[in-house]
């Protein structure tokens, strides 16, 4: 249970002359809720991008060990392969399929778990029909879990902001990941929505058995929800520990926290 499912070792990312990540190593164990925090521009999203295959890291290795499976290296793999292997993510700036319905957005999440191709689409044989019915049903169930089912036929761009953020999470969940990477899920949300969100995060971890790795700026959410925190600044890992440890860590406070955290 405490084996690491994601292991990033000595990850360095260079963009031309800019070193966005410098020798960063992190690991996530199954069943954890881990947060990645740091000032803006610290390299957090860059790290997520390296893990999910948006670009391969310039140096270092990233390996995953999906529950029940053997370890494999994933740096250099394309994003859709990484997703198929069980890593799902949401984006810092909402990237929904704006002109598709809420249900359809979630249905796309199922893409890697379905099998039917061109012939299946055209001929609609028994297994394809079953698969399609199941997709619709399963997607709706996910919407219910996130409490978005009332928007089911609404076009995504018409949703209120908070619901859009939740929809991204629902869509990511549809991929049946073992690890969910959330990039600033609370950005732009009001306190009520954020409170709702932290219940959701814990619920996802407990009920869906999905490990959560999140980037967040909202410190109260981070402190309430995470069991472990990594702190980066200027592309380097400057601290790691429990919320209590991080709160007290002078390096972190100097770089980032300041007055923001209430006991």
């Amino acid at each position: 249970m405490s084996d690491s499912i994601l292991d990033a070792k000595n990850v360095t990312m260079n963009f031309g002359g800019l070193r966005a990540l410098n020798n960063v190593s992190m690991s996530i164990r199954q069943g954890e809720i881990v947060a990645l925090i740091g000032p803006n521009g610290a390299g957090k999203t860059t790290f997520f991008n390296c893990v999910t295959g948006v670009y391969p890291p310039s140096e270092g290795t990233i390996t995953i060990t999906p529950p029940g499976k053997s370890q494999e290296v994933i740096n250099g793999l394309a994003p859709h392969v990484v997703a198929e292997k069980g890593l799902a993510r949401t984006f810092q700036n909402i990237r929904l399929f704006q002109n598709m319905t809420v249900l359809e957005n979630v249905m796309i999440g199922r893409h890697a778990r379905l099998k039917s191709g061109i012939l299946g689409a055209i001929f609609r044989d028994g297994s394809t029909r079953e698969e399609e019915e199941k997709v619709i049903h399963d997607s709706y169930e996910i919407l219910k879990k996130i409490e978005l089912e009332k928007y089911v036929n609404e076009v995504a761009k018409n949703l209120p902001y908070g619901a859009q953020r939740l929809l991204e999470i629902a869509r990511a969940l549809a991929t049946e990941p073992f690890l969910l990477l959330l990039d600033e899920p609370a950005a732009g949300m009001n306190p009520k929505e954020t409170g709702h969100l932290d219940d959701l995060i814990v619920r996802i971890r407990d009920t869906e058995k999905v490990t959560i790795f999140l980037i967040e700026h909202d410190m109260s959410l981070v402190m309430r929800v995470s069991e472990r925190i990594y702190v980066v600044d200027y592309g380097q890992l400057i601290a790691e520990g429990t919320p209590a440890e991080i709160k007290r860590n002078p390096v972190v406070i100097k770089a980032y926290l300041g007055e923001e955290v209430n006991a």
Partner: peptide, 27 residues
Amino acid sequence: RLENSRLGRAWEAMREDSVASEAMGVN
């Protein structure tokens, strides 16, 4: 039929946001 299938949805997702669609498993 193509439109209302896994492939059709993949096409539309690709159109809407290719980065996000790839992150959701679309090749």
